[in-house]
Design a protein around this nucleic acid. Structure first.
Lengths: 210, 210
DNA sequence: TGTACATCAGTGAACGCGCGTTCACTGATGTAC
DNA sequence: TGTACATCAGTGAACGCGCGTTCACTGATGTAC
């Protein structure tokens, strides 16, 4: 896809009906740069364009603004996150084990993709910076949370309201991941004990409230 | 301290030997703006200067760079944070109760000052943004962590290494605070149950490892 | 006691930079006749 | 089959903005004589 002219890499433009393919490439490049940076403000439109081999005004032929580009990446990554939870829970029908596996998948994915994790759970929606998500719009992470709530609900049965429990569990998992990401210089114990502890604490809370 | 000239507020400059007082004012203004923003990048040198009623070059008579100003605020707030932990633990000699109280103080302070909390535990040291803390320099939050480790050590006795336990406990507390701050739109259960659960989980882990 | 002067607090104007975004354009390509 | 043309992908240059920071300065004030 690249030709060279006087030693400079030149990208061949797409044929007439194929312009939408650049859109995909831009999303992929933006996603990767956001993963490296962990913050939309550290990723410029120019950088995304350059990563694809295109000039920055080209981005605006596919996205109305930087905000829209970022928002779309966010939605993609949230979708992936949710799928990881679901996939993690597979392989057993025991509700407790399914929940534990999903939690492990949560933490593992977060630690493996710290930039994206921060993007999704630390930057997005925070302050004037954020990813500039529309105030009224539904949060793109809502389905992920719904999935976690479901897993908790399956575990605790009908006697207890599951969504506060899920939020508490989420808080525990978030603490485990986020601090490890922001303070990598500390001597963190292996995360698995802590995950089990968090899930067991959630069980215990459920029992107390039943 | 303000006079008016043609309807514009004008600050009287400090007398000859008193220039250092502006330094304090700048630190206070920066601290407040950082509390509102939660991120050093959303607070400009110009804004700090304006808050005090001074022009931006004046800042450079007291701080070599923005980074130094921010770093100093960070150190102040970390100190305050640590003091809050210590003060929270006062009033009882029971080590378990002291730890629980300190944890409550941690969460309460974080939720009462979300901007500062983010500044200290979410921004600082993260990525190229961060507060630009020197790599080699000791982290200004180290004493806070040391205090938590001490409280845990008093609780669990000599049989168990307390610092991994303290890190795990910290992770739990951080999750409780950070998610509530970043996702205020969710329907969070009261935090007290969760704090107790976290402390109890820590106890339990200590017992298992003894 | 009066005055010259060094010192100090603070300013006004400007710098270079990177950013998001706009605008008028270029040139290749598929298509209609 | 050849050609004119509308359409499409992408560009080059520039915009206004806010930022951190620098520089040469101004004018009040304490102090030494």
């Amino acid at each position: 896809m690249l030709t060279y002219f006087e030693g400079v890499a030149m990208r061949a433009r797409y044929r007439k009906g194929e312009g939408e393919r650049l859109r995909i490439e831009l999303l992929e490049a933006a996603s990767q740069l956001l993963a490296e940076a962990g913050d939309p403000r550290d990723v410029s439109v120019r950088a995304v364009a350059e990563a694809v081999g295109v000039t920055s005004p080209s981005v605006y032929r596919h996205f109305p603004s930087k905000q829209d580009l970022v928002r779309e990446v966010l939605a993609l990554r949230f979708g992936e996150f949710r799928e990881t939870l679901v996939a993690g829970a597979r392989g057993t029908s025991d509700a407790g084990e399914r929940l534990l596996r999903a939690c492990r998948a949560y933490v593992r994915l977060g630690l493996a993709n710290p930039g994206h994790y921060r993007l999704l759970f630390s930057t997005a929606g925070m302050g004037p910076a954020g990813a500039g998500l529309g105030q009224g719009a539904p949060h793109p992470g809502a389905p992920s949370l719904a999935t976690l709530i479901e897993l908790v609900a399956d575990r605790v049965g009908d006697g207890v309201r599951s969504s506060p429990l899920a939020l508490e569990l989420w808080a525990s998992l978030h603490g485990i991941v986020d601090l490890r990401i922001t303070k990598p210089e500390l001597d963190w114990p292996p995360e698995d004990d802590l995950i089990q502890l968090a899930v067991r604490a959630s069980d215990e809370a459920a029992t107390n409230r039943a």
